[in-house]
C-alpha cells in the first residue's frame, strides 16, 4: 500500500496554509491526523500532488473556555479532547462519544476538526456536535465565517467548507449539568458505529426539561431526532415514557444498507438505542 508520490508542506500558520491552498487549489489536500486521508492515499483512491500538513500550527490545538461556549481547536486530537476537564464538565456528550471512538492509536493521531471535515456519516463526532448546536469556524482568503452545525454537513463526505477554506475551530455551547450518553452499536470494539445515538438531557426534578438527540449513520449526514426531542419535553424519565417518545427516532432518516446491516434494521436500532441513550443520559437504568 504505497501512495502515489506527492509534495509535502507543513506551514506554521493558518495564513501560510491558506496561501498554499490558494496556490495549489485542486491539486492539494489538507492533512490533519491522517487517519482517514492516509488510507485513502495508500489505497490510491486519491492522488493529490500536494499535501498540506496542519500539524505544525500550534494555534489550532487545544480547548479554551470562551464564556458561553468551549472553543475546540481543529487540530486537537481525539485523545486530548476526550480527557479534557472542560469538555467533561460542559460538553459531557462529546467526552462520551470520544470514549467509544476507534482505538487508542487512532485517538492519539486523529483530530476533532479532521473528523468533522471528513464528514463520514458513521463518524462518532457529527451527532454530538449537531445535538449540542455547535458552530464551525472556517477560515478562507477573505477571513473567517461561522457555520452552524446544522448547515455544515451537506452530504456524504461533503461539508460547507469550500476548496479554499480550512476548518479552524469548533464552538460548542456549554451544556453544564446536562446528563449525556452515547449509545454506539458495533459488532466488534474497534468499529465505526452501525448506528449510534447521542443524547443529552437536562432534568428538572423527575422530569425531562430539555433533550438533545443526534443520530449517527442514519443518513448521509448526522441527523437530529427533533420529533423525539419534542416528545420528551416535560415527560417523566420512565422507561415507558421514553420508549414512547423514541418510537419517532427514525422519522425522516434514510439509513444505508451495507454488510453491517440493512436500512430496516438500522431504523429499528435507532428507536431502541434512542430510548437507551435518553434513559442513560437521564441517569436511569436503560433496561
Amino acid at each position: 500500500m504505497i501512495p502515489a508520490a506527492f509534495e509535502y508542506v507543513a506551514p506554521a500558520s493558518v495564513e501560510e496554509a491558506l496561501a498554499a491552498l490558494a496556490e495549489h487549489g485542486d491539486e492539494a489536500k489538507i492533512i490533519a491526523g491522517g487517519q482517514s486521508l492516509l488510507p485513502v492515499l495508500r489505497m490510491r483512491l486519491n492522488a493529490p500532488e500536494w499535501v498540506i500538513d496542519l500539524g505544525r500550527i500550534e494555534s489550532l490545538r487545544g480547548v479554551r473556555d470562551a464564556g458561553d461556549h468551549l472553543a475546540v481547536g481543529a487540530m486537537t486530537t481525539h485523545h486530548d479532547v476526550g480527557k479534557d476537564a472542560l469538555v467533561h464538565e460542559h460538553a459531557l456528550l462529546v467526552s462520551k462519544a470520544i470514549s467509544h471512538l476507534a482505538d487508542a492509536q487512532v485517538r492519539h493521531r486523529g483530530t476533532f476538526g479532521g473528523a468533522l471535515a471528513h464528514a463520514d456519516p458513521a463518524g462518532d463526532l457529527g451527532a454530538p456536535v449537531l445535538a449540542l448546536d455547535a458552530t464551525m469556524v472556517v477560515q478562507g482568503p477573505g477571513g473567517t465565517r461561522e457555520v452552524a452545525a446544522a448547515d455544515f454537513f451537506v452530504d456524504l463526505f461533503e461539508t460547507a467548507i469550500s476548496d479554499d477554506e480550512i476548518l479552524v475551530e469548533v464552538r460548542v455551547p456549554k451544556h453544564t449539568g446536562w446528563g449525556a450518553s452515547y449509545e454506539k452499536f458495533v459488532r466488534i470494539a474497534h468499529q465505526w458505529p452501525i448506528v449510534a445515538v447521542a443524547a443529552a438531557v437536562r432534568m428538572d426534578g423527575d422530569r425531562i426539561a430539555e433533550a438533545r438527540v443526534g443520530l449517527t449513520n442514519m443518513g448521509s449526514t448526522p441527523l437530529r431526532a427533533t420529533a423525539v426531542e419534542e416528545a420528551l419535553v416535560g415527560q417523566p424519565a420512565t422507561t415507558d415514557a421514553v420508549r414512547q417518545a423514541a418510537t419517532h427516532a427514525a422519522d425522516g432518516a434514510n439509513p444505508p444498507t451495507d454488510l453491517n446491516g440493512s436500512a430496516e434494521y438500522r431504523n429499528h436500532l435507532a428507536t431502541v438505542l434512542t430510548a437507551r441513550a435518553v434513559l442513560a443520559a437521564a441517569g436511569r437504568d436503560a433496561t
Binding site: M43, L45, N46, P256
Partner: peptide, 22 residues
C-alpha cells in the same frame, strides 16, 4: 461500509459505487 472515499475532504459531489445503497 464506506469510510475511505476518493473524494475525502474535496468539496463537490461524491460518486460512490458501493455502500450506502438506499
Amino acid at each position: 461500509a464506506p469510510h475511505f472515499d476518493e473524494s475525502t475532504g474535496m468539496s463537490g459531489t461524491v460518486d460512490r459505487t458501493t455502500g450506502g445503497a438506499e
